[in-house]
Design a protein around this nucleic acid. Structure first.
Length: 260
DNA sequence: AAACAGGGGCGAA
DNA sequence: TTCGCCCCTGTT
């Protein structure tokens, strides 16, 4: 157990858990209690974290801690340039409402698989598909696992998306050997991902943002489109095409879905 | 029971 | 750039 002081204004696990960037977080207690306890997986590893008003408690060793600090993006400082959000009451309200939001540094493969499964469906279904995927392979499958036993993905109830998973596994094997994803420009990263059959603009941007921390990435889904139409008179606000687009998109999404 | 919609993407025009 | 279709599941 390692306790580190973090104010909820700085990181709020409840906000992150309901912001749609991760599908496997499991809340272990009910919300009436003073603390929030989450089981948080990465691939086949997990940690249990307790959040209190002024501190986080990590159930892990000192050696493992840095991995989870990195995952939760706690080393990154969020500074919003004022000129991007001035005279914009919608995004200002979203920033206020989503205090404690952070953009996770998730595993690339896991994020890719999760968002391929997310297309044209809803969050409960996504969660179910991912847990079925883990169930049929007995673990979170690597791309090798899927290539070895591709027929298993047909049992997770993903519909036509199961073919996309297999093509992603094929491409990923190739990409893994040739490319260091960490050192690509945003544009290169997006175009490489879109070469995967079943990965279009929206999913590529989700992966870019939620696993590789490209803050230029701004996935335009039905909710973002709704925000553009309803809040901005069908004209993209400037924050959506700024260097902080990804972070602000996440706050806007959370605000629109949960508050409005 | 049947119709519908839910964090998109593809392929054809 | 638009548009019908893709497969499945929970909901009405």
């Amino acid at each position: 157990m390692i306790t580190i002081p973090y104010d909820k204004i700085y990181i709020n696990l409840d906000v992150i858990a309901n912001s749609g960037q991760c599908f496997r977080w499991e809340k272990l207690n009910n919300s009436s209690e003073m603390e929030s306890v989450y089981k948080i997986p990465i691939l086949n590893d997990y940690i249990i974290i307790h959040q209190k008003e002024k501190e986080l408690i990590f159930e892990c060793s000192k050696e493992e801690l840095s991995k989870w600090i990195e995952y939760l993006d706690l080393d990154f400082t969020y500074v919003l340039p004022y000129h991007i959000v001035e005279n914009d009451s919608f995004i200002q309200s979203a920033i206020e409402y989503g205090k404690g939001m952070r953009i996770l540094n998730q595993d690339l493969w896991e994020t890719l698989i999760s968002f391929i499964l997310s297309q044209n469906t809803n969050i409960p279904k996504i969660k179910k598909c991912i847990s079925k995927l883990i169930e049929v392979y007995g673990k979170f499958p690597s791309y090798q696992d899927i290539l070895n036993e591709p027929e298993k993905v047909t049992y997770i109830g993903a519909g036509y998306r199961d073919k996309y998973l297999i093509s992603a596994a094929f491409r990923y094997e190739d990409l893994q050997n040739r490319i260091n994803f960490k050192h690509l420009s945003y544009f290169e990263f997006i175009s490489i991902l879109k070469n995967i059959h079943g990965v279009g603009d929206k999913i590529a941007n989700c992966v870019a943002l939620f696993s590789n921390h490209y803050f230029e990435a701004c996935p335009i889904d039905v909710w973002m489109q709704r925000i553009i139409n309803e809040e901005y008179n069908e004209i993209k606000p400037k924050w959506m095409i700024s260097n902080y687009a990804g972070y602000l998109q996440q706050l806007a999404f959370y605000y629109k879905r949960n508050k409005l």
